[in-house]
Write a protein that binds this DNA or RNA. Sequence first.
RNA 1: GGCUGCGUGGCAGAACGGUCAUGCAGGGGACUGCAAAUCCCCGUACGUCGGUUCGACUCCGGCCGUAGCCUCCA
Length: 461
Amino acid sequence: MTMQLYNTLNSRKEPFTPQSPDRVTMYVCGPTVYSYAHIGNYRPPVVFDTLARVLRRRFGRVDYARNITDIDDKINAAAAKEGVDISVITDRYTAAYHADLQSLGVEPTTHEPRVTKHLPQIISMIETLISAGHAYAAEGHVLFNVPSYPDYGKLSKRDTREMLAGARVEVAPYKKDPGDFVLWKPSSPELPGWDSPWGRGRPGWHIECSAMSEAVLGETIDIHGGGHDLVFPHHENEIAQSTCAHGGKTYARYWMHNGFVNVNHEKMSKSIGNVLLVKDLLQTLPGEVIRLVLLTGHYRQPLDWTDEVASDARKKLDRVYGALRDLGDVKSAEGVTAPDAFIAALEDDLNTPMALAELFDLVRAANKADNDADKARIKAQLLDAGHLLGLLQQTPAAWFATASPSSASGITPEEIEVLVAARLTARANKNWAESDRIRDELKAKGVLVEDSKDGQRWRML
RNA sequence: GGCUGCGUGGCAGAACGGUCAUGCAGGGGACUGCAAAUCCCCGUACGUCGGUUCGACUCCGGCCGUAGCCUCCA
């Protein structure tokens, strides 16, 4: 079975084959670092990190770029407000972004291009577009001339003429065509700016991705991803710029877009006040729980974040880690990887819900296994499946000891062990009343004690 | 108004033209001093109206509802 990916360009699943049989190139639009990122901002990194793991397994090498947008008017506004250089803002929020990614188990990308490091490439691409007749300078701006690219609107299935009717933004007088968009804009003296053939200014929003993608991955990439809202205008404009700058060569062969994250059935918005920052969620939830929530639904569907889905994810991980724990010290079998059905689910347009169903089949098999050979094989399968999803990255002991930072009642593992030892003595004397009293005491402190055939064990509730 | 989706059991969430999704919750049983964990068994679905078909949750059409985008936005 060949790998299948849904391509926004053609609105259907298509067999995926990279340009080079042993190398995949992928570019995903990254964050603008002007504030802390919310849960929705992390769906693309988690989804495409998972995809990268699957692609790497199948094709060997994945050259994956996710940019940091560190030039932007929102950054300028934040810097002006604090009276600092934009680098203070962008450094701070880039570091915060990286910290969140690590908590979510997102592996570093091959490339992480920044706009401030690619001004020459951006300017060069704009010059190419001007000399090819696709762009023009006007009043300090440089604009891309949309009518010069007949395929404009193909990705988002839009008719440029119809769009004008619904246009809700005033058309700048220097535009030749109302649909023309900015490649370069002038900066007033108090704003950050860079020298260019058109005066001191800064790049428009869309050109950065075109220029950086070319710089780090080449003119034609295999996969370009991002949030669904970027289809228009951002990705439509990227296609226009890159295709025209490259003499008509295909810019990206497969376009993938993830659905939005809602919160309690509502769109996240500052006015509603329901914006969930990942750095805040991490105060009460392990990163793996957040990651699992993001993988619980198919990436193209909207995802509703509620307390219930978070607690469901936690329980799911309890179950999987529980199976791993019961596998005990059995050494996982060499050379055994995740089951074919699990891989097949992920290779079918990254069907993570179906892959998770396969994972739970494995969990049941693990819990039923009664010999070391089966246990060794299943353990290897579980760990490999977990690795592909970016989950199960800690030991069961660590998971059960820390799975709930929220309910940490201040009790230390040492104190727990003292009580557990006292309970062991009581149990040796069949003093059930004392045994149950200690169990209740621990439970009141957020610790659940269980009696297994191997003795007592505990976990944080 | 234009474009693109979606509507599955108490909740979350997939697949598939005729056979189990899966997880949580719920009911019954096994195990346990009692629990917990685990295992076994069991309910509750496919927005609505038509069409195609031997047979549709799955294909087609109408309707209703709902979400996103239409140059800030993951």
